[in-house]
Every structure is written in C-alpha cells, then in structure tokens.
Design a binder for these strands. Structure first.
Lengths: 340, 340
DNA sequence: GTGAAAGCGCTAACAT
DNA sequence: ATGTTAGCGCTTTCAC
C-alpha cells in the first residue's frame, strides 16, 4: 500500500515523529543506532515521505527547474543533458518540466516555483509575450532559446541567437554561392515567432545583394500539420515543386523540416544538390547522417546552456541581470549545397 | 514578488480565506459578485495557489502521470501527444514526468504518486526489475513498452511487444529475401534489456532456417557512446565495415541507430541496398524520409497507447489487472532491403 | 538525544 | 452566502 506516513513509522519504532524526521534527513544530532533502526523500518515498509508536505514546510529548496516548451523539438533534446550536468556540477538539484503547447509557460513557472520553492527556473523555448508574468516571478530565471526580435526582450535575462542575422547569413551564403532563386520554407503563417524573424533575415539578404524577392518562393508550413515536423516539410516542399516554381536552392528554417523536404525532392525524381541545394537551421545531430549530409546553421548549444546557467547563478548570487546575450551560430558546410 | 498566499488575498478583499478558496475553485455556492471581485484581485496580484498545500490537503486528484525513462528515445516522443489526448478524453489531467537515467523509475513513481495523490501512473520505458516497488505502489499503474522476456513480468499490467518474436520476424524476412550473411547491431554488451532479447530473436531465426550464426557479425553498440544514438550506429557500423566482414544485410535494432549506420555505409563508398540491405526497428517518423526510405519493424504505437490507457482505466475502475498484453508489430517494406 | 508543539498554505466540513 | 476550524504530512524551534 505504501500509504504510510511519518506517524506510522514513528509509532512502529516507538519514537516521536521528529526523530523519524531526523533519521530520514540525516540530522547529525541523532543517535546512530536509533537512526539505523528507523531507517530499517523505513526500508521495510517502503516508506516515502510526502513531498508536498515537505515542500510546504521547507522555506527553500536547492532546486532549479528547466521548463521546456516544445518537447518535440529535437534541437532542445540535445540540451537536456547539458543542463542537467551543468546544474548538478553547481550543486543544484535539477528537474525537467514540460509545458504543454496550450499552456502558458510563465504561469507554469510561477506555479512550480511556488510549489517547489525553487531557487531558479530556466525557460527553454516558448515565446516572449506575457511579460507581465516575468515580473511576477519571484525567483531568478532566464529565457533560453526564445525567438527575439531586435529591440525586443528589453530588461529580461535572455540567452539566444540573433535569428534575423543568422538567417541573413544563411541566405547570403547561398547567394554568394551563385544562387539567385532561393525558396524558403518558414513557420506557419500565423506563427509570428521564429518563422517571421528568419523570414525577415531572408528578405534582408536579398535586399543587401540587390536581388528581388519572388514571393512565390516564400512558403509557409501547412496549418493542418504539426509545425516543424518532417511531414510538414515534406508536404510544403512537395507543393513548391509541384507548383513548377523555378528555384535552385531552398532554405528550410528547421533541420527537422528539412528532412521531410529531402524526401519530397527525391520523390520528385530530383537530386540534392544537383537539382536543388538545401540548407537547414539548428544543427541537430541527425543532419550529419542524412544523405547528402545537410549544410546547416548550427546553434551554439553548449555556449547557450552554460551561459544560461551562468546568468542564473549570478542572479541567485544577488546580481540583477537584465541583459540579452545573443550568441553566434556557425554555418557548417556539408554536402547539400552546390556552387552554381 | 508573487509571494502572496490565500491569506493575503482574503485580507485584501475583506473576506475569509475560505471565500477566496471558493472563488479560485469555482465553488457554485459563492456569490457571483464576490467571486468576480476576488478573482480580479487574484489577477491583479498574480496570485497563484501553492500546489504543495493543495496536494497535501486534497485527498485525491484526478491526475494520471506518464513517467518516461529515456526521454531521448524518439520512439517515445511520438507517444506523448497520444497519451495526453487519450487521457484528457477520459477526463483526466495529465502530466509528463521525466525519469533521469540514473533514477529508479518505480521509486520516482511512488514519490510522485504520493505527492500528487495520483489516480494512476503509466511507466513508459525503463526496465522490469525492482519488482518490489511495483507491489508497493498504491495506485493503479501500467508498464508500457518495457522489454519483456517470455515468461517474465508475471502478474504485472504490461503493454508491450514481443521483442523476441518481432526480431525473429525481421531476420526471417531478410533470410526469405535471400540473405544469409546478416549482421546485427544490437544494444550495449552490458545492457541486458531489449538488446539481448532482440538478439535472441536473431539467433532463433537463423536456427529456424538451418543457417549458421557468424558471431563476427554480431555487433554491440560501443560502451563509450550514448546507447542507440546515431553516432553509436555510425561508429559500430563503421567498425563492422572496416573489419572487412562479409555480409549482405544488417539489422539495426533501433531506427535512430540505423540512421548513423546509413551514413557509415555511404562514407565507405557503399550503397543501400545495393551493397548492404539495412533494416531497422521501431518505425519512427524520420525513417520514411531517409534515402532510401528505411524498411523497418514499426511498433503499434497507437494501439499500445490506447491499450495502456484502457488497462489503467479498468484498474481505476476497480479491476485487478495482472495481464501482459503484447501487440504485434508491422514490417513496413520500403527501399532499404533488396532481394538477393 | 529526543519529544512536544507550532505552522507551512490550503480545502472542506460544519456553523452561522 | 460566508466565516470558523480542523487538519493534510511534514520540518523545526524549543524544551527537557
């Protein structure tokens, strides 16, 4: 049943509940023998202290939570271990919480921070709206990998990349390689987050190079399919090809989506990079293993994680940090882009 | 600060704490106007009730938790939404908890069940040891997608596949296609879970067809790399090729690992399925998008999820379920295997 | 070294 | 319709 409480154990051991508490919390003042005796009983009955009661009573914990919005994002998945190890190294307990798509991440953070008396929280993913909540959050926090427009996110501790700039670089690279007709597969039309920022970068790269943008080559992921999924990449790319558009390269703003685009290209009887050059964004692990290996803009994951942890630690240490740290991504040239 | 308690709100509103409690819990007996007035203040102060206190007080919740061990497993990721929607449909709140690799999943389950007064818990992944805990768990639970050897897991509510049988089918399929020299890339040597069960199936398929097993063709993932990672697949496959082994097909026991194997084959200047046929296991989404599309044994994800939910519901309803439900996987023939 | 008692923030009888 | 009160299961002074 495992429905035992501290009272039951105390009763069984013929001691007070405080003594049991001391035993399970390894209080140094307790007698070694009583402690062992109690711990034996604890083991025997498989007694597990109720965390709610504990959290309620304890004035503070030593825990940092990572709140992930967008668990499906393979790009985030590579960060979990990094966060876990980094935080543990600093002596903090670490918990990973998932925020469902329809949940407000700050509200969730607020709630958990209270419930668990957190030392700090790191938000991974999510958007940058609802800034009201961020003010109300009583614990140190940092926003990692949120899409941030130039000028936005003022006064907030943010660790991210400059999406517009990096997107610009991707497209500029393609142009320098001799491509002029470059398609883009960006986020859903209604999604005004990363998708629109990276699209801005795309436009700027064209403008910068004195090239016209063909609106026909701008494709939004389909609303009826999960955003950034392989399937959405497949269908969106298929539409692009089926429409008979003339282009030599395509910038897919997420690696995962690019995987689907690959397939659509092959299914159309075309080759990469022979017929179409493809370039991705994020730098997730699998891209190295695609055929041909995907050229992509890889985000500085390690740096972003350690910087997030650092910013949080400094806040826990008392500093008031309201800076935005934008790190540079790295274009990894592999085999999916050819020079014209 | 957001450090307000129900008391603060009550005080500010000039009502008792119970009235505030009624307001936030939407008690029908409360006066609409007082409720609105209180809710306004709640909003204004951004008051969030402390969940620990709530959990402690409430005798039961309406929550089911999904405890995932092996968050990185892309195969599991496809199940999250299914669980969420399925459980919500039944009227349950749903939470996803991650069990870290070095944590005992049952202990974690026990703890959370107590803390949150769960209605039930679904374990996804993890092993089948520590059965002591399963007896102690006071709430209904089901073990989903755990590797289970024939005869094991007696008396436990399990939803899974018959790993040995399906592995047998994979290899038998290859043999029927004319392959005789079939390599296998299985789990780490020390990991005696799925890896060894699927290896058993491999051996049985050879025996069944009166073919000898070449021990040289049995490869375990490297201990120094994350298990089932693309990278491990790459390196293990590379070793196999570099060793100059003679084989025409390889069974990689996880799709994700197969992706790395693909790359190793290409890097060696070989083709799929021209030089080597490749077959995977799991049926994760990306396999459709690889080139060539991967032939793989796809696990009946939807069925496994709905059956898990069903088993849990029936237990919550009072039934004592101790059955093992093993569902059949489906071999999807795509383009990575050729007939000899 | 151990026990008694207060109280963490809330919900749910039970009164009013 | 609202207030009063008794805990939920723990940790932590403060006595002894």
């Amino acid at each position: 049943m495992a429905k035992y409480t501290i009272k039951d154990i105390a009763h069984y051991c013929n001691v007070s509940i405080s003594t049991v508490s001391r035993a399970i919390n390894n209080d140094p003042t307790i007698n070694k023998e009583t402690r062992d005796r109690i711990l034996d009983v604890v083991e025997k009955f498989n007694y597990v202290p109720n965390n709610s009661a504990r959290n309620l009573k304890m004035s503070e914990s030593n825990t940092v939570a990572l709140l992930v919005k967008g668990l499906h994002n393979p790009f985030f998945q590579g960060m979990f271990d990094l966060f876990e190890n980094g935080l543990k190294e600093k002596g903090y307990d670490f918990f990973l919480y998932t925020v469902l798509e329809d949940q407000n991440e700050f509200e969730a953070g607020l709630q958990i921070a209270k419930e668990k008396r957190l030392k700090g929280v790191i938000f991974l993913g999510g958007k940058l709206e609802k800034s009201e909540y961020t003010k109300e959050l009583s614990v140190p926090f940092v926003l990692c990998s949120v899409p941030v427009r130039a000028g936005a996110g003022k006064g907030l501790p943010i660790v991210s990349i400059d999406d517009e700039k990096e997107s610009f670089r991707v497209v500029d690279y393609l142009i320098k390689k001799g491509h002029k007709r470059i398609a883009i597969i960006t986020g859903k039309h209604r999604d005004m987050a990363v998708g629109s920022i990276r699209l801005d970068g795309y436009r700027k790269a064209f403008a910068h190079n004195g090239l016209p943008v063909d609106e026909d080559l701008i494709r939004y992921m389909r609303d009826d399919l999960p955003e950034y999924s392989e399937e959405n990449g497949y269908m969106t790319m298929k539409d692009l090809i089926d429409d008979g558009c003339d282009f030599t390269a395509v910038f897919v703003i997420s690696d995962r989506t690019a995987i689907g685009a690959y397939k659509a290209i092959y299914d159309a009887g075309k080759t990469i990079p022979g017929d179409y050059s493809v370039i991705g964004f994020d730098g997730i692990e699998v891209t190295r293993y695609l055929y041909p290996a995907l050229t992509t803009m890889v985000q500085p994951v390690e740096t972003m994680v350690s910087s997030s942890i650092d910013l949080l630690m400094r806040q826990i240490g008392g500093e008031d940090i309201r800076e935005k740290e934008l790190y540079e991504a790295t274009l990894i040239e592999r085999d999916s882009v050819r020079e014209l």
